[in-house]
């Protein structure tokens, strides 16, 4: 465990969301940049599940897309087994690496080409990476479909003949086809019903045990993350608020935002007990607050929080970016 499987260092990305050039010149506006991900660092060890939780607009899906190379970072880098991926996915070295990571998407209706047979969808990585040929490939597709709980005969069907959960199984089979080590899962169950979600989560856990997979698991649902993750990063407005072991996060959360998120989760065990509503809403990422981005909603915010941006610091087993935690104000409150 000397080098982590994946290491993200000071990753930032900005999107140009300004009006078209001509409108801008005519209306005398400046370029508008949206900082979707801001100086994010974390690492993932082989065989573990690292989860990123955050609400909409936190930049969690953007991080996923940066890691798999669908987007290029504005600054910072991603290292896979110590090798930089920042050159994008064009080089020969990166081409070899690409085989080793895959992605599972949120919407199983959009992630499978509706005009392709399921067998062709699952076989696409095999074709691209030329790992098997002809008959072997067909056998492998059958094996993969069985592995995810479908039947090899399902390969002859089209995606629209399957339910959402079954489609997500097909997507998982495709992700596994080229024997990857690392799978980025972008909200893999948020489009599914709970009973189907349980099936998919169990399947993903089983596959991890069987194949020694490493997951980056992105979700907005803390209960799902609690169930899946070994370590968790809490993202707020493009910045990491807290990184902790799954166990410590739920027992001994440090950052006030994490605390707020946990309090806001409806839980069946709490029937009748009202959850604590959170003050305010997430500010626009176009115009983030100065200092700590959470300060307008934070019950512990003071003058320092409004001006100075907190860095991630280690508190016991947990990394947190909070002045209040640093100064011990959270315990006093």
């Amino acid at each position: 465990m000397s080098t982590p499987l994946l290491e993200v260092k000071n990753l930032s990305v900005s999107f140009d969301v300004s009006r078209p050039w001509l409108n801008r010149k005519l209306e005398g506006q400046d370029k508008v940049l949206l900082k979707a991900v801001n100086d994010v660092s974390f690492s993932i060890n082989k065989g573990e599940t690292f989860a990123i939780v955050g609400e909409s607009g936190s930049g969690k899906s953007t991080i996923a897309r940066l890691i798999v190379g669908l987007l290029k970072p504005s600054s910072g880098d991603v290292f896979f087994e110590g090798k930089s991926l920042s050159a994008g996915l064009e080089g020969a070295e990166a081409r070899k690496l690409r085989r080793r990571f895959q992605m599972i998407f949120q919407d199983p209706f959009a992630s499978l080409n509706p005009r392709w047979h399921v067998a062709d969808i699952v076989a696409e990585p095999l074709r691209v990476f030329k790992t098997e040929t002809g008959k072997q490939r067909r056998e492998k597709v059958g094996e993969l479909l069985s592995l995810v709980g479908l039947s090899p005969e399902d390969g002859a069907k089209f995606p629209h003949q399957f339910s959402g959960g079954q489609r997500q199984r097909i997507a998982i089979a495709r992700a596994l086809a080229a024997n990857p080590d690392f799978i980025v899962c972008d909200e893999p169950t948020s489009a599914l019903d709970v009973s189907v979600q349980a099936q998919i989560l169990n399947l993903m856990k089983d596959l991890q045990d069987k194949l020694g997979l490493t997951y980056l698991f992105i979700s907005h649902d803390l209960s799902v993350v609690r169930h899946m993750a070994d370590r968790i990063g809490v993202l707020y407005l493009g910045r990491m608020a807290e990184i902790a072991d799954a166990k410590s996060l739920f027992v001994d959360r440090q950052h006030p935002y994490t605390r707020m998120l946990l309090d806001a989760v409806p839980d069946l065990g709490m029937t009748g007990k009202p959850r604590k509503p959170v003050e305010g809403e997430i500010p626009s990422p176009l115009d983030p607050p100065s200092g700590c981005v959470f300060n307008p909603r934070c019950p512990l915010a003071n003058a320092r929080c409004r001006t100075e941006r907190p860095e991630l610091r280690l508190y016991g087993p947990t990394w947190a970016a909070c002045h209040a935690v640093e100064e011990g104000r959270d315990k006093a409150a």
Binding site: Q199, K205, S223, R226, V265
Partner: peptide, 16 residues
């Protein structure tokens, strides 16, 4: 049973 809970530590969820 299939709803993951913040309180439980179950390895596997009950699935239908």
């Amino acid at each position: 049973g299939s709803i993951p809970s913040l309180l439980s530590d179950a390895e596997r969820l009950t699935q239908i």
